[in-house]
Write a protein that binds this DNA or RNA. Structure first.
Length: 418
RNA sequence: CGGGGAGUGGCGCAGUCUGGUAGCGCACGCGGUUUGGGACCGCGGGGUCGCAGGUUCGAAUCCUGUCUCCCCGACCA
């Protein structure tokens, strides 16, 4: 991507009406645009980050044999009435609307009920189970108060996965497998070391559900942590959990966290309410066991922005950065332009994402400042100096000094095949 | 929904108390000098002060209502 073609601009100043770090940086760097409180548009650079996160999640969901689909944002009232969750007393974050003939509709805040309904024509036999499906969907929730930038919006992207099983044992095994897949997701996103599988309030079937909580000052949750035993407990279930686990409260450290994922064992309660059953091997009608697994994609993006940024701006891990390389061309001398254009083409063809700062009118200092603000992992400078010395000036976003590499060394650094 | 703060060119702000029809920096356009950590000089375009009423000869400024944004709280399947 050439910066001369990018319509967004960075700003010298952070927006005055934002106080959360993720919103300030993402807006200042031109990654997102706030449409209204809790509602953000994802601009080209921001969308790259979202897509990179989604790709990692996709790969890990594939590792637990889940298939991707996409359900609808408009939902039927009747579907939700089956479990009583159409009622505003039960679910207070509904956005609702009407067709022109006055038929009431709901705007998707979750797809738990609709997916059970959707499976009715497909799941009849034990041979159809187990089954796991997931999607990336924009969830719409009429929150009383949006806050913390993109970390708590009224409109946000969520990966939601649902699994269906012939037995509680099979669901339990899959649930455990999913926990491992989720851990790999957060590791790959660069926040694994600070992310804990946390006991949280359960449901109809199990004593606890599990949340994935990442240590983050901008988070809304408080958990109690035992680092050596790797135990984490949401404060909302602290008393029960201590009893259950046989540990003392004073062994635990209290930390502020953001919930980046949640997995939930419904048992057979949801499918029973919805009337979805299957015929077992012995010919009897049996209950389907269901699990629900979420990852807040855009919230994770906010958490990464919060945790990994510094005084100069964003600092993306390579796996999610909008590009791996920020190629800064200094000046417009023919040889410099030629060298920079060639490197851009070569890296791009090798599959290295490059943000090419080919702007003629922008001075060096501004290019460096933008590279830092945007948080691109590697900055490569092409100038008269580098053309003369036949080298590339390379600096990692987190490094203090640049180093000069020849082409072989650069290719090695970026993993480019010669 | 309760409490607090704030709405003035694209962005950041001053002006409001002590009414006299709008100013600064950045950004933008043109010309010139510059060119390795957000350059400099000159010229120029762009807002009627969130919105609606009211008071007044006259309102960004005073009064009333209303909308929006941020923060704290409540809420969070």
């Amino acid at each position: 991507m050439r910066l001369s073609q990018l319509f967004t601009k960075t700003s010298k100043t952070a927006p005055a009406d934002e106080t959360s770090k993720n919103a300030m940086l993402l807006i200042q760097a031109g990654f997102v645009h706030k449409e209204m409180a809790g509602v953000y548009a994802y601009l080209p650079l921001g969308l790259k980050v979202v897509e990179n996160i989604k790709q990692i999640v996709r790969e890990e969901m594939a590792s637990v044999d889940s298939n991707e689909l996409i359900m609808t944002s408009l939902q039927r009232r009747e579907t939700w009435e089956k479990t009583g969750r159409w009622s505003p007393e039960v679910v207070d974050i509904w956005f609702k609307t009407k067709l022109q003939d006055d038929t009431e509709l709901g705007l998707a805040w979750s797809h738990e009920e609709p997916i059970v309904e959707m499976l009715r024509p497909f799941v009849h036999s034990y041979k159809d189970l187990p089954l796991s499906l997931y999607q990336f969907q924009t969830k719409l929730r009429n929150e009383l108060r949006a806050k913390s930038g993109i970390m708590r919006g009224r409109e946000f992207v969520m990966k939601d996965m649902y699994s269906f099983h012939a037995s509680a044992e099979d669901l339990a095994a899959y649930y455990d497998k999913t926990i491992e897949a989720y851990k790999r997701v957060y590791d790959r996103l660069g926040i694994g070391a600070d992310t804990y599988v946390t006991f949280a309030s359960g449901g109809a079937f199990t004593k606890f559900s599990h949340e994935f909580q990442t240590i983050c000052d901008a988070g809304e949750d408080v958990i109690y942590l035992h680092r050596e035993k790797n135990i984490a407990i949401n404060e909302e279930v602290i008393d029960d959990a201590i009893k259950e686990l046989g540990i003392q409260r004073d062994e635990l450290e209290q930390v502020k966290t953001a919930e980046v994922g949640n997995i939930f064992n419904f048992g057979a309660s949801k499918t029973e309410e919805m009337g979805l059953k299957f015929t077992a091997e012995d010919g009897t009608m049996s209950q389907i066991h269901m699990g629900s697994y979420g990852i807040g994609v855009t919230r994770v993006m906010g958490v990464i922005a919060e945790k990994l940024s510094d005084e100069r701006g964003l600092v993306w891990p390579e796996a999610v950065a909008p590009a791996r390389v920020y190629l800064a061309r200094l000046g417009t001398d023919t040889e410099v332009v030629k060298s920079a254009d060639e490197l851009y083409d070569r890296l791009t063809k090798s599959g290295v994402g490059v943000l090419y700062d080919d702007r003629d009118e922008v001075r060096p200092g501004e290019k460096f400042a933008d590279a830092d603000l945007m948080g691109i992992p590697y900055r490569i400078v092409i100038s008269n100096k580098t053309v003369t010395s036949n080298s590339y000036e390379v600096k990692h976003r987190t490094a203090a000094e640049a180093e000069h590499l020849n082409q072989t060394q650069l290719d090695h650094l970026l993993g480019v095949e010669a």
